[in-house]
């Protein structure tokens, strides 16, 4: 007798928990040839607001960890991702990719995490410096995380794109609300299972699946989001995110470059530079 396989229910990831959409809605995730892979949650405006709230609550604590500690957590994510390498290859292949390309993509995502893990206790040395001012003052500039970022994750490559845009956001101490790729949500959801088991504090990364078109305006206009990475957004969605950003001077990142960029400048784009002066004297 054949054994009936046990299917996974794909849910959202908010504040370290896996709720369904409060709206009760879902949509089918399909492979490139139209086969339904699973039904995934269709997040609502309220889900997005809960996600932003969770991200805000987690932000100070995450930023308050030492860089050494955050680096170990990012490295831990890489460890767990390596451990589930085949799961992701399977998902990416099921969505329509060639096995070799899928394997390379998962490996590249793991390596990107390792690369960023090493930056956690170094980027401030590269982005900060003592400023040689013309007077008797100690003057130092150092980067600080901006706060809560929204990320519109790229559709392709779904896993590597997600990791490449997320890692430079969280490495400095930001927290994130991610709109997962609408056509390819499954790697994103499986990735949240890794986050949940990698010592990443609840709320540091929040993942919403659903209609990007529907969620973009709510993300754009949300008053407690400090910035948005628009790399994965369509031109129309980018414009809408920029317009919403203008309501409260959000930082808009991802207008240039490519989905899989890897750069200390990208870490810097998600930070603020603080300069502190103090007189020198006896």
């Amino acid at each position: 007798m054949n054994r009936l396989d046990v299917r996974k229910t794909y849910k959202l990831y908010i504040g370290g928990k896996f709720p369904r959409s409060e709206s009760g809605r879902s949509y089918p995730a399909k492979s490139t040839d139209g086969e339904v892979l699973a039904r995934v949650s269709l997040a609502s405006r309220k889900d997005l607001r809960m996600a932003v709230e969770a991200a805000r609550q987690a932000q100070a604590g995450w930023a308050g960890l030492t860089g050494y500690n955050r680096g170990q957590i990012l490295y831990r994510i890489a460890e767990m991702l390596e451990d589930r390498h085949d799961t992701f290859v399977g998902q990416i292949v099921a969505a329509g990719a060639k096995p070799r390309a899928a394997t390379d993509e998962v490996s590249a995502a793991i390596d990107a995490l390792v690369w960023y893990a090493g930056w956690a206790d170094k980027f401030a040395q590269v982005h900060g410096n003592l400023n040689p001012v013309a007077g008797p003052y100690f003057n130092i500039s150092a980067p600080e995380p901006t706060g809560v970022f929204g990320i519109v994750a790229p559709d392709a490559p779904a896993l590597l794109g997600l990791v490449a845009r997320l890692a430079p956001v969280i490495v400095s101490g930001n927290t994130a609300v991610v709109l997962a790729s609408e056509p390819s949500p499954m790697p994103a959801i499986t990735f949240t299972e890794i986050l949940a088991t990698s010592d990443v504090p609840p709320g540091v990364v929040n993942m919403l699946t659903g209609s990007t078109e529907e969620l973009v305006p709510w993300l754009a206009d949300h008053g407690d989001v400090d910035g948005i990475d628009v790399m994965g957004a369509s031109p129309q969605q980018r414009k809408r995110l920029q317009e919403g950003g203008a309501l409260d001077i959000k930082r808009i990142v991802g207008l240039r470059g490519s989905v899989v960029d890897r750069s200390p400048q990208l870490i810097g784009a998600f930070t603020e530079t603080k300069t502190v002066w103090h007189p020198k004297g006896r």
Partner: peptide
């Protein structure tokens, strides 16, 4: 973006200036 401790309104071409938030 700028914190002046035991001084205020100090500026210098070598010192980055600019804001947080709005």
């Amino acid at each position: 973006g700028v914190v002046w401790a035991n001084t205020f309104n100090q500026f210098d071409p070598a010192s980055p200036f600019g804001g947080y938030k709005e």
